[in-house]
Design a protein around this nucleic acid. Structure first.
Lengths: 120, 120
DNA sequence: GTAAGCAGTTACCTAAAAGAAAGCAGTTAC
DNA sequence: GTAACTGCTTTCTTTTAGGTAACTGCTTAC
């Protein structure tokens, strides 16, 4: 299978950037990943998610949930018993974000230990 | 070694969020990761880095480089021959970000294929 | 002598994100 | 009957990130 081992070219560098940018477009922002964590973890109801994320407001949560739903990173299901009941759940696709989340989690933990010398 | 397998608690969810937030505080923004990629890849000079990142401006680059330097994610070395020569290089610490970068790269590539049905 | 490269800085402006606070229509609990 | 929960929406204000563009002092190349 002897492949040539090529040194990385400028194109590789650029390609890396473009894909990372694609990811950041979807995932970045102060709240999206936290919301995904909450939902993947198992929180389903609007208020439940809201309570699980420190300092998030209803307004921001509603907006971000819509955005994540549009991108199929979250599923919104309405059960129309009265009272109306709404459930947010993870999708297969949102589960694919786990790798990113875990990398961020590991790095963040490590970073805090570096700068504060202690764990949370 | 039989550890108890515990179901994740609310505290686990919160701890995850807090660490991820720590990471995002350092790493987020439109440009920081792209700059890290460029420098890790091997670009050293200010203009070289600038040219390697599509559409970045001098102002933003200068600001972000300072920020990354403060956080020890980049090393800035001045060679004071005349003309003054400045080199930016990756640190051990910035290399630790690679895992995050790779996760973002993989996800971003996958995402693009999902929504566009093609690679870059 | 002028154009172009180096490593930035400065000042001004805008759009988007986010915070704060209140409200609403419906339901349930006491 | 009133307080508290649900899933949001609305308005208003502040903050921040980022874009644009020009300009600096210095050096080398033509």
């Amino acid at each position: 299978m002897a492949k040539k081992t090529k040194a990385p070219t400028e194109k590789d560098c650029l390609a890396m950037m473009l894909s990372v940018r694609d990811a950041l477009d979807v995932i970045s922002g102060k709240w999206k990943i936290l919301i995904l964590i909450s939902v993947i973890y198992g929180n389903k109801r609007f208020r439940e998610i809201e309570r699980s994320i420190p300092n998030i407001s209803s307004k921001v949560l509603a907006k971000e949930l819509k955005d994540l739903e549009d991108r199929q990173l979250i599923k919104r299901t309405v059960y129309d018993d009265s009272p109306v009941l709404v459930e947010y759940t993870a999708t297969d696709y949102s589960n694919s974000v786990s790798e990113v989340i875990i990398a961020l989690y590991n790095w963040g933990q490590n970073h805090r230990m570096k700068i504060m010398g202690k764990r949370r």
